[in-house]
Design a protein around this nucleic acid. Structure first.
Lengths: 330, 330
DNA sequence: AACATTTTCGCAAACGTTTGCGGTGTATTT
DNA sequence: AAATACACCGCAAACGTTTGCGAAAATGTT
């Protein structure tokens, strides 16, 4: 009783398999009456086409592989959500594979994609991925690979990234517009390329304007660091009247310190951060942030995939633009 | 050049398809020498077996369906991570489908699982899922369904939940031990079995003790509700001196309201919640919570699935135990 | 040398679809 | 009445595997 096939339906109805197949696909060759009979029986038997047989025959799996270091991350989550959502709407299924930042697991996951004859791969590579060859081989085999967020240096591939530079600039402009005088900028690990980019952009914005503001830049490797640094800064003689947090990780630490010190924002100090938006909305007032939306990035990556699938072969790097989301913290 | 099949290998080697197939599976019928030849050619050609053809033939997809309201949720994330990780180790692939809390999408996703002839389904249902029949039909077809976290009331099915009763009990005991007098308990949608359980347990704990405390129970469907309800409660003549939040979703709303009203905790009011631990650590002082680990829950669900797949038909509800994690909020 | 055994391999069917092509029967046109 | 057109449907091959069964070749036993 479990598995209904076209064959079974055709036998019950005294039709051929092909007729049943065509009837269910609303093929013009089949009479309305026959279609009706077939549809009704299929319905009542709860027939579900065997996806494997279909792909074996048609060579179109309608499956995307989604490679990601981990699923437990605000930013990736929203990417995943976007990609999965759009894919489902477009009739694709997504299989998500986590590498745990281990290049070997990543490779195994990539093989899984090949075995499942995926229609395309979205990949956010690990920091340790040195060899992009396996990915490019997929491209050679006609399977589009869209890199997102963490992308390889290799040029000839499709990449979708966040606008790191732009985002920091926007935040800086905003602080300047608010005429803040004593600005504390908490950035991440200075070795990370993302940190470098954001720092230069942030500084540049201040230098470009006749900034009367005093700028204090510090680096935090984690939430705890950010907590300590903020705590320290707000016990100086001259307290900051604005804080810029480069990431969620840092914002979390800063906010914790501000809660401890009962600093009232935006009155005593303004806060602005770069985020995908989840964390800033947890506070009251909500934190003003420059959105680097994983969601938007996911959508863009998806669109890129679709245009690749429909023939476009143009290779490019897309940057999703950042927008300022006003909370009440600055 | 793209798709290598057994046939192609067999032709290059002057062997039959079956011999090549057996050679790659290390079948004893094949001589070592032949195996070696086959393996080497397969290797150099980068042969990858066609998963679809295999499943069509063997009827074993080695795919799990993972149904979840959304992937963007601290708790689900950790469940997903655990399930995906374990599955991969066991040679299974996971396809993750989000319902967005829409029962219709959920149903569509379930169909997708059937079409892909999944080996099993992990399901965390939406609050609005009224009809469990479609899930049970999968069971009838021999496909195990393991419900986790948000599970249906229906008894004859496999469920893995957090220790709802236990966790709520622990939280209640804690509040009682602190001799709170005016307790606000914010629970979720009253239709959810998880809500019902937590509520009864919470109430029971209060009734068991010679509770002089006044207990006010309200229901929030989302973060916004929780914000409003908290805001309201703290503007009553008699303010709560303790708040119990049933979930992260609720805690987020409550904390936002408390920040708005500048309620000092734990001095003016104690807070305790049930959480997986990420959110509580964002505040200062950190929120005291009863930990219900999504990770642990995921692992348990996976184990349950495996034992189902290996024959066990015993239907049961498993509860993963909860522990109290002291913050400074109560 | 005849027979029995074992090793090694190939044949062919099956899994559930899709689809090109051809074959009926009926209606329409000359 | 013959020819043409059309509507409707079935045959059979193909997709890439796995696997029971049988066959040939090699080896071992009397």
């Amino acid at each position: 009783m479990s598995n209904i096939t076209l064959k079974k339906i055709s036998q019950s109805l005294g039709l051929s398999i092909s007729t049943v197949s065509r009837a269910l696909k609303n093929h013009p060759d089949i009479s309305e009456q026959t279609k009706k009979r077939v549809r009704e029986l299929a319905e009542s038997l709860e027939y579900e086409p065997n996806a494997f047989a279909i792909q074996l025959r048609t060579k179109d799996s309608r499956i995307f592989g989604l490679l990601v270091p981990t699923v437990s991350n605000h930013f990736y989550e929203s990417c995943i959500q976007a990609i999965e959502e759009e894919s489902r709407k477009a009739g694709y299924t997504v299989i998500i594979l986590q590498s745990g930042d281990d290049p070997e697991t990543e490779l195994a996951n990539l093989r899984l994609c090949r075995q499942n004859r995926v229609s395309g791969v979205f990949a956010c590579i690990t920091p340790n991925t040195s060899n992009v060859q396996p990915f490019l081989k997929l491209e050679d085999a006609g399977i589009p690979v869209i890199f997102f967020d963490k992308v390889p240096d290799f040029e000839a591939c499709n990449k979708v990234c966040t606008g790191d530079i732009e985002a920091a600039g926007i935040a800086a402009e905003r602080i300047i517009a608010k005429q803040k005088k004593q600005v504390l900028a908490i950035l991440g690990n200075p070795n990370l390329s993302i940190t470098k980019k954001r720092m230069t952009a942030f500084k540049a914005a201040f230098e470009k304007n006749i900034a009367t503001a005093k700028l204090q830049i510090v680096h935090a490797n984690n939430t705890k660091d950010a907590f300590d640094l903020t705590h320290e800064a707000f016990q100086q003689a001259k307290r900051p009247d604005a804080v810029f947090c480069m990431s969620d990780e840092i914002l979390a630490g800063t906010m914790k310190a501000l809660q401890l010190l009962r600093v009232k924002f935006p009155k005593e100090a303004g806060i602005i951060s770069i985020s995908n938006g989840v964390l800033p909305k947890l506070y009251y007032p909500e934190i003003t942030y420059v959105e680097t939306s994983g969601f938007k990035l996911g959508k863009t990556a998806f669109n890129r995939m679709m245009s690749r699938l429909s023939g476009s072969t143009f290779v490019q790097e897309i940057t999703v633009e950042s927008v300022l989301v006003e909370g009440g913290s600055l």
